[in-house]
Design a protein around this nucleic acid. Structure first.
Lengths: 144, 144
DNA sequence: TTTCGTGCAAATACTTTGCACACGG
DNA sequence: CCGTGTGCAAAGTATTTGCACGAAA
């Protein structure tokens, strides 16, 4: 269960593509791991606590890069900013309550019947690390 | 299988709340039905073909209203603008290809195993008319 | 030394808000 | 008439882009 990508392996992944390891890229990747659910804004805030000068532009560019490298995924929780989270085997499906805004996580295996069906019948390969389901949570379904 | 909400029934729903039937509201609701998948921008364009003066602000306000009335739903297809579609029994789940951007639709019944499980085990009521699944379509999965 | 990466500033996209007038009921 | 709805303009947020300098390899 790999929860952290070490600086050296990040460096290796970057080098493979002729890209460079910078303090910003390390800090941003660490921030995503620490935050779990991270918007560009929250990453920016977190990174700034360690290194004041890091620009929001760099956060956007780096998150996009980290996603290309397969180190993070993003999903859209309700409206507004995308939410980034570490890629890997700790993936989860999000349950977003439209009433109270709470976000719960469930094992992506709950999607297996659906992903299997869609692959067989529609030739569509669902990216499970990317799924958000909207609805009403237990606390809200009675008092909407 | 009700595919259109008539002007009179829209009027009735509005009147119940002390709201008014206006040409803009009729046109915008019609546009959502005609377009099927409609962003605020595309609704604006479609409506303008019939009535030049309609403002984008009114489109936003009206889509929000129509959603409160339960006449339309919106979902987030990839990034960017939300996509509105008619509410009712023609609901569908969206399959969004992250490679080519294509949007396919499937019967929401494919989600039944998942919605049932989440209701039983997590007390979470999934809004199926709101589901978008991201992944790779058949055309793209071989040549990503 | 050679690119690549970053910060900065400005541009762009999307959405919301305040207000005065228009108009549906 | 009364009060809601609209258009307009402007403000607010979120994100992207161009460019010159700084820095990794």
């Amino acid at each position: 269960m790999l929860r952290h990508v070490s600086a050296t392996s990040l460096a290796a992944m970057l080098r493979e593509r002729g890209l460079r390891l910078t303090p910003q890229r390390q800090l941003i990747l660490e921030a995503v791991h620490e935050l779990g659910h991270a918007t560009p804004e929250s990453v920016h805030t977190a990174v700034r606590e360690r290194a004041a000068g890091v620009n929001i532009t760099t956060v956007y560019r780096t998150l996009e890069l980290l996603e290309e490298l397969g180190l993070v995924n993003h999903t859209h929780l309700s409206h507004g900013s995308p939410t980034y989270h570490p890629a890997g085997d700790d993936q989860h499906v999000h349950l977003v309550c439209r009433s109270c805004g709470s976000i719960a996580e469930v094992d992506p295996a709950v999607m297996d019947p659906v992903t299997g069906l869609l692959l067989r019948e529609r030739d569509f390969r669902v990216d499970v690390g990317h799924v958000s389901l909207f609805g009403l949570c237990g606390d809200c379904k009675d008092t909407p």
